[in-house]
Design a protein around this nucleic acid. Structure first.
Lengths: 193, 193
DNA sequence: AGCATTTCTTAACCCAAGTCAATTTTTATG
DNA sequence: CATAAAAATTGACTTGGGTTAAGAAATGCT
C-alpha cells in the first residue's frame, strides 16, 4: 500500500528511482472511517489526498440541496477547489467508505520543493494532467444528456453503482432521485438494459 | 501591450522584477485576424495563449453540432485541453474578433525552466490557479439552470452579450438558440429585465 | 442600394425533468 | 428479529427545453 502513488505518478512523468524513493518515504498515509468529513463548508482547505482504497464524495450544499460534485475512488487524486487558498471552502469531502488516503499539505509540498527541486517539475506536470482530465470531464458533462451520463458511468465506472446510493448518483448526474429512477426504468423498458 | 501578462501573473505569484523582465522579454505576441482558427479537430495542440485583446471561442463539433466550451477575452489564459499531449484535439479555437495574443509552446516553456528554474514554480502555481478557477466554473455550471447561467453572464460578463452572437452564447449555456430566445422573452415578461 | 445569407424570433407539439405526495423496499439499530 | 429510518419507486401534474418549420430582423456583399 502506498506505491500506487508512484505507479500513478510514473504514468505521466518520468520519476527517477531516487525521487520515487523520496516521495514514497515522505508520503503520509492515513486511515479514515466511513463517515469521516475531511473538509466542510467554512473550513480552509489545508490538505489534498490520493485514494489508495475506498471512496470519497465531494459535494456542496446549494440552497439547502446536497449536490454531488464527484466520487473519488482508487488511484484518483482529490484536489479541493480551495486547496492552498485563503478562501473558505464551500465544498465538503466525506469518506463514504472506510478509506486509506495519502495526505498532503502545502507546507509539506513547499518543503519538498526546497529539498528536491526536481519534485516541483513532477507536481507541475501532475497539475497539468489533472487540469486536462478535469477539462475533459467538464466537456463530457456539458455535451451529454443525463441519460448519456448514466450510460457513461455504467460503462466506465460500473463499480460506482454498487458503491454509491442512487440519490447521490442522481445529483452527480445533475438529476433528482425521482428522475434517475424513471430514467433507469425507461432504459430497462426500451433497451432491455 | 504585453505587460498585462505580468500584471496577471503578479496577481497570483510573487514575481521578482528580474523574472518579470525575463518573462516580458521572452513573451511572443502575435496579432490574429477575426476568423483565424488557432486549433482545429485532428490537430496536435502545440500552443497555449493569453488574451491581451480580442475574443477567442473554444468549441467542438459533437455529432455535427457546434458546442461552445468557452469564450476567452482580455486577461484570460487559453489552455487547450490536449496542450502538450500527443492526442489529437477534438477542440477548436477561433478568434471571433481581431485578437492580440501571447503565444506559448511546451518547447519554449521547457527552455525557460532550464534557464530560470524559478519559472517552474511560477508556472506550477499558475496551473493550480487555473485548475481552481476551472473547477469553480464546473461547479457553477453543474449547480445552476440555464436561466441562472444566463443571469450570471449578464452580471459578470455583460460585455459578452455585445461581442458574441446569441446562438453561440446559447450553446455555451447548454441550450438551443430557440430556447435562449424564449428564456430571454420570459425574463423580460416576468421580471421586466 | 439591393439582394442573399445569416441570425434571431415565434409558434405548435412532444418529451424529459421537476414537484409533491404516497408507497414500497432496503438498511440500520436496539 | 422487529421496528424505525433511509432510500428508492411510482403516479399525477407542471414546466421548460428540443424539434420542426416559418417568418422577421440584421448583416454581409457586390
Amino acid at each position: 500500500m502506498g506505491n500506487e502513488i508512484i505507479k500513478y505518478l510514473s504514468k505521466y512523468t518520468s520519476l527517477s528511482n531516487e525521487l520515487a524513493e523520496i516521495v514514497l518515504a515522505s508520503t503520509i498515509i492515513k486511515n479514515f472511517k466511513k463517515g469521516t468529513i475531511l473538509l466542510k463548508e467554512g473550513d480552509i482547505s489545508k490538505e489534498s489526498y490520493f485514494v489508495l482504497k475506498g471512496c470519497v464524495r465531494s459535494y456542496l450544499i446549494d440552497n439547502g440541496e446536497d449536490k454531488t460534485l464527484d466520487f473519488h475512488t482508487e488511484e484518483q487524486p482529490i484536489l479541493p477547489i480551495s486547496y492552498g487558498k485563503e478562501t473558505l471552502s464551500e465544498q465538503y469531502l466525506e469518506c463514504i467508505e472506510d478509506s486509506i488516503l495519502t495526505v498532503n499539505t502545502p507546507e509539506h509540498e513547499n518543503e519538498m520543493f526546497l529539498k528536491y527541486p526536481q519534485f516541483e517539475s513532477v507536481c507541475r506536470i501532475m497539475t497539468e494532467v489533472m487540469m486536462s482530465n478535469f477539462q475533459e470531464s467538464f466537456v463530457n458533462f456539458k455535451t451529454t444528456s443525463p441519460e448519456e451520463r448514466y450510460l457513461f458511468i455504467l460503462k466506465n465506472r460500473p463499480d460506482l453503482l454498487q458503491r454509491v446510493p442512487l440519490f447521490q448518483l442522481a445529483s452527480y448526474l445533475g438529476l433528482k432521485p425521482e428522475s434517475l429512477s424513471r430514467l433507469r426504468k425507461r432504459l430497462v423498458k426500451n433497451k432491455r438494459l
